[in-house]
Amino acid sequence: MKFNPDADLDTSGVEDTRGSGGGGGMLPGGMGIPVGGGIGGIILLVVILLLNGGIPGVGGGGADEPTVRNTGAGNLDTCKKGTDLAQNEDCRFVFYQNSIEGFWAAELPRRGKKYTRAPLRIFSQQVNTACGAASSAVGPFYCPPDKRVYLDISFFQTLQSELGAQGGNFAEAYVVAHEYGHHIQNLYGYLDRIKTREGPTSDSVRSELQADCLAGIWTKHATTAQDKDGDTFIEGLTEDDIVRGLDAAAAVGDDRIQQKTQGRVTPENFSHGTAEQRMRWFKTGMDSGDMTSCDTWGTDSL
């Protein structure tokens, strides 16, 4: 994944609250699960809310334009130019956010839809949200009421060490793009359709696969998003990048996680889709680059 050193980075869409404290407890659905420590505890929490389109029982809404503040010890305000990546590798998250949101902010108006900003909030250990308090164990998530994507970047270590993904910059970008896919769903009202949360054809699975497809659409156009001077944020993606993105999608498939945690696959408990489905829908979006290819709600063959 080649970042453009000439790009002007915009930190107004990234909130870095690491080290600022706040929050406690878990998001709804987290504390109620009787899990122990180690890989089982981590993954069973991840399977509930990892890359999830909001929290069970929470609908849309919230402020139309969220206020963005950088308050934490891990402040990313120094990420102003592409060259700043050399001094602070966490600037890559500003690259991801600028490219992903920049693409959708341009794409939706072309389709007659207003785009509303969704800041990326980076936190450590725990965070308060309009969906409730969350700990790092729940993995990345999108909260519809406050229209924010939440990410503890230590998750990417879990993705590799616990879930077996290869990792890499584009694997990280895929995760962030997936969460922004949920934001696009929220703007179109798709998250309000989620009534059934378990099963191979449940609304939850359809939502997650559609978010994977939307992440693939951004991938197709990743090198087109530009800063205010017309410089792109991402100059190029390699075949290895794509392989790592697909690998990350497979690593968080329900069947892979269930096999790791319980030694068997139980489709009746699926909430995100299988490894094969997640890769296929991500690739569908990437190959087409068109939102009309992502209709997981109107097909019987997920």
Rank of each mutant, 00 (worst) to 15 (best):
A7C: 10
S12R: 13
G13S: 08
G40T: 11
G41D: 03
L44R: 11
V46G: 07
I48P: 01
N52A: 12
N52V: 02
G53E: 02
G59F: 03
A63G: 08
A73I: 10
L76A: 02
C79N: 08
C79W: 04
K80Q: 15
K80M: 13
F93T: 05
V94G: 01
N98W: 00
E101Y: 05
E101K: 11
F103W: 12
E107P: 00
F123N: 03
Q126V: 01
S135M: 00
G139H: 02
G139C: 02
P145K: 01
D146Y: 00
D152A: 12
F156S: 07
T158L: 15
Q160R: 15
L163D: 06
Q166C: 01
N169H: 14
H182L: 08
H182W: 09
H183S: 09
R193Y: 14
T196W: 15
T196C: 14
R197G: 03
R197I: 13
G199P: 12
G199Q: 08
S204G: 11
R206I: 14
C213L: 09
A215F: 11
G216Y: 05
I217H: 03
T224G: 03
T224V: 11
G230K: 10
E235Q: 14
I242C: 06
G245R: 04
G245Y: 08
D255F: 05
Q259S: 14
S271K: 11
H272E: 08
Q277E: 13
W281T: 06
T284N: 11
M286K: 06
S288A: 15
C294P: 04
W297E: 00
G298R: 05
T299R: 11
